[in-house]
Design a protein around this nucleic acid. Structure first.
Lengths: 337, 337
DNA sequence: GACGCAAATGCACTTGTGTGCAATCGTCAT
DNA sequence: ATGACGATTGCACACAAGTGCATTTGCGTC
């Protein structure tokens, strides 16, 4: 049953034996500022090279901090998530962290078990990109001295860092963009996944429009995907009088919406219809779309995360709001004036 | 300088003290099949719950295997990579592994340092999705008892598992598809990143075409991106006589190519031009493209990786080739017959 | 009540590190 | 030659777990 010998990882002890020095000497050779003679150091490095020795960071993590950061994320294949993961892994790595990724569902239970796993591996910090952990779980993390960073998760939970984008600004600006373009019949396309971010963009857009005396048709046909945006367009234009100005709370929805409008109903943009998105995914810049949208300032957000985790003392945990930057392309008519 | 007290992680010892039992009892409570009385177990679980205790898998990994699998990957934002990462993380997690992700460059040096980090964390296995590690480095990994899996990396290196897609079949089938559609002037669009996979698709396509008495214009304008495919189309159609049948070695290239052909030169597909891609990214199924392509069988590949890592004894390390499956959409004319 | 047997428990060792403290080594000056 | 002093070095402990082995505990039976 038990395999006879399977511990091929070479340890400091083996290096010490081969080099004819004490294990402490090996340890000191690989720690900066420790006192080792040049001669010993040379012998150790030689033996280490021959055996292929690598310091065991897991064991080192027993004493000090593990340097592990966990990324909880769902829907990695979504362009926007992939970009966020890309930026974060890059920047965290550059800061000397090691990234453990947990591909979780968006439901509460799967986020919960993921967060628990995070603790099992003594991660210094957990960055939550999707799904919202319960307050109780976050408390457990904090009790274990772990920092928690929520990105675009809203519901600002106390004790952890909250980074988010100014959805209010986006909703407001989207409306002004469409009004300036002379749109008369507004619609808002969202998804059935009622995330706080999406809800806020929707709420603000609708409120501002109503305040300006315009009504808004709200449509949600499924998850936050291309297909769902496509379907929303079919439903909206299947009616007698379709909209001529649409704010899609996500670029993916917008692209699906545009395709349906063009290919199923022969509409042309921005002549017959203006569309505004949100996220600024690469696909939106493709020649077939040239979508006017708002960019999430990912690099700034990534920098901020690194900065937060750099300071070991989690001083002020709070909410940090980032301004999305409007990207002007061709899916909205330039204003008349 | 040294912080006075900062070890907030709760350990088995603390739980033991609180529950009034020995530390061994705590350990046994959390290991299946160990001998603990119901009473002790209850006390331990209660104390653990109050303190928020979580077994330290890092410490456990010191004795047994770490259950860590490293993913070396570049260009995560690329749709195809994101999907691969998604599938692998999902399946590996389900198999009880923990995934450490390293966002590396494609250059040799950055792959090297990434692979070394892998060893530092005693990963059971390393899965390389991009970049090709040197043979010497792989040797070090193997010497440390670590399994290495290369996906679509070709250059079959001995000692590690190689999974790849049948590029030869793809190149051949792409040609037959275009010929059956009646295309007379063939072109092949690739990137300047001369990966083995891409090179093989190119080689086979060109060879088969020549054998059939047709010449092929080969064009590469940059990295494996949409923009580069777009540029290739501009160059090809800027000449007197553009191609009427094109195999793009990647879907992203194909989509860029199609957009340029349509929007810059007013061509219509599949009437004036037939395009075949490779990868089957989601965007290819969008209404604006409906790209005929070959799908990489990711779920099968993922299953195979899990299977390989499940068996602790790395029995036969070799090459496993997966058949891409043709996806018929609308960017190629149906054959005349 | 004593004995036997099984279940439960605790001690001590293991894994691979880093490091405080004490001992040793080497060098230089008196 | 000896003392002083600084640079090395090794011992032993800490970290957080799992487990073999010996010991203790509990229970039933004669």
């Amino acid at each position: 049953m038990s395999e006879p010998e399977r511990r091929p990882f070479v340890s400091a002890r083996m290096v010490a034996e081969r080099a004819g020095v004490s294990r402490s000497a090996v340890s000191r050779t690989f720690t900066d500022g420790a006192s080792v003679s040049e001669e010993t150091r040379r012998k150790v490095l030689e033996a280490a090279g021959e055996l292929g020795y690598h310091v065991n960071h897991l064991a080192r993590g027993l004493r000090e901090s593990s340097n592990i950061v966990c990324l909880l994320v769902a829907d990695i294949t979504t362009p926007i998530r992939a970009r966020l993961v890309d930026v974060l892994t890059r920047k965290l790595q550059a800061a000397g962290k090691v990234i453990m990724i947990i591909n979780t569902g968006t439901d509460e239970e799967s986020t919960a078990s993921a967060l628990r796993q995070t603790l099992n591996y003594r991660a210094d910090a957990t960055v939550v990109l999707s799904g919202t952990p319960s307050a109780k779980l976050i408390e457990t993390s904090l009790a274990n001295g772990q920092q928690v960073v929520l990105i675009n998760r809203d519901d600002p939970l106390s004790g952890c860092h909250n980074l988010s984008v100014d959805n209010e600004m986006a909703g407001r600006e989207a409306f002004f963009l469409l009004r300036r373009a002379g749109c008369k019949r507004l619609a808002l396309v969202t998804s059935t996944a009622r995330t706080a971010s999406l809800l806020e963009r929707e709420r603000v857009f609708v409120d501002v429009a109503r305040a300006a005396g315009m009504s808004v048709t709200v449509m949600a046909s499924g998850p936050t995907t291309y297909a769902s945006g496509y379907e929303s367009a079919r439903r909206l234009f299947g009616r007698s009088q379709g909209p001529d100005g649409v704010f899609c709370v996500t670029d993916l929805l917008a692209l699906g919406f545009m395709d349906a409008a063009r290919h199923e109903f022969g509409l042309s943009l921005p002549g017959d219809l203006c569309v505004v998105g949100f996220d600024d995914i690469e696909e939106g810049d493709w020649q077939s779309y040239k979508l006017t949208t708002f960019a999430q300032p990912f690099t700034a957000m990534g920098d901020h995360v690194v900065e937060l985790l750099a300071q070991s003392s989690p001083a002020e945990t709070g909410r940090q709001v980032f301004e999305p930057v409007p990207i002007w392309r061709k899916s909205v008519r330039p204003s008349a004036d």
